[in-house]
Design a protein around this nucleic acid. Structure first.
Lengths: 176, 176
DNA sequence: CACCATCACTTCACTAGTAAAATACTTGTG
DNA sequence: CACAAGTATTTTACTAGTGAAGTGATGGTG
């Protein structure tokens, strides 16, 4: 049944020879998540490059576009898993290109709002559709069952990662 | 059954309102892979930081350590999904810190070999064990079934991504 | 209402990563 | 064996991202 073992299985096997006492099972998930992300990014970046965007810009404009209303930079930090400094820089660059605009919040003037422009919306709509198409091609090797299993499992993992940076205690029990 | 919908479900829902005609199902996998990778990286980087390594250095030393024998920079590029320039830089820095050494290949002198030092092996053994422990904690929220499903699905995806950078033709038809 | 801890964001100085050019070696080919 | 083409790696010039310090605004508290 096994074809070529993937690079992660191979790595686990090598570690087993050196340190048989270590439990490397977590690599099966985390190692693969990292490598899959790296390869997917590599492939998809060529598509975004055609539209004149890098992935960070794409993610930022997507978040703005789909949110409908202006978003604060602080919220963008969280959506992008990036530092505030990175967000500031990206917003400035995209604003210079006329893809979004910054508005000061009238009620709390520490805060700002970032809103996508019509030009930005046009661009991201086109880029988003193209990106989706490329994504579908990249996933062609997975069948429906595998997709469901992976998305379900990752959703669960995401929920446990999103909240606190501290590792979850043994009994979380968060009722809905 | 559904608790809090994760950020990816939410994003899909928003896109559906704006562009109901788009098939955004690929986000369920790819969106989650990207976000999970970003969050995992954020969490695990603190552990590596304690050992004086960043993730790239950790991955490079790990590859060297587990491979047993010296590795060419070219091979490291592939293992790390990085440019040759990045590999050169990292190898230089780690060599300066005495964690690895570079040897010229005697048969083909265009090529080089990178070998981990005893000092490097000690460091990575410690860092690797600590990293594994942190990984296990982060995965605590997933049960065995979910883990198996995710690792199996991602392994399949990885295999289809590893080979050719070219997008698959319309009729793949790869019998299992 | 002056004070000060906190917040939201930006600026600064720096590190890491990249693409493209450069370097150094190897491998045919006539 | 001279030479063109190809390979493996490094160097160069540049962009993107970060942590820490800085700026300006808010909101208790006495």
């Amino acid at each position: 049944m096994r074809r070529t073992p993937d690079i992660i299985s191979a790595a686990r096997g090598q570690w087993k020879e050196i340190h048989p006492e270590l439990d490397t099972s977590s690599m099966e998930i985390i190692g693969r998540v990292f490598r899959t992300a790296a390869l997917l990014r590599q492939r998809l970046d060529t598509v975004l490059g055609d539209e004149g965007l890098n992935r960070a810009e794409f993610d930022l404009l997507s978040a703005l576009r789909r949110s409908g209303e202006p978003v604060t930079p602080g919220r963008l930090n969280g959506l992008m898993v990036a530092s505030g400094a990175a967000t500031t820089k990206r917003v400035q660059q995209l604003a210079e290109r006329g893809l979004l605009e910054r508005v000061r919040d009238q009620h709390d003037r520490r805060s700002a709002r970032v809103r996508i422009t019509d030009h930005g919306a046009e661009l991201i709509d086109r880029a988003f559709a193209r990106n989706l198409e490329a994504e579908r091609e990249l996933l062609a090797g997975m069948n429906a069952k595998q997709r469901e299993a992976v998305s379900g499992g990752l959703a669960e993992l995401l929920r446990s990662l999103e909240g606190p940076p501290a590792p979850a205690p043994p009994a979380p029990s968060q009722p809905d």
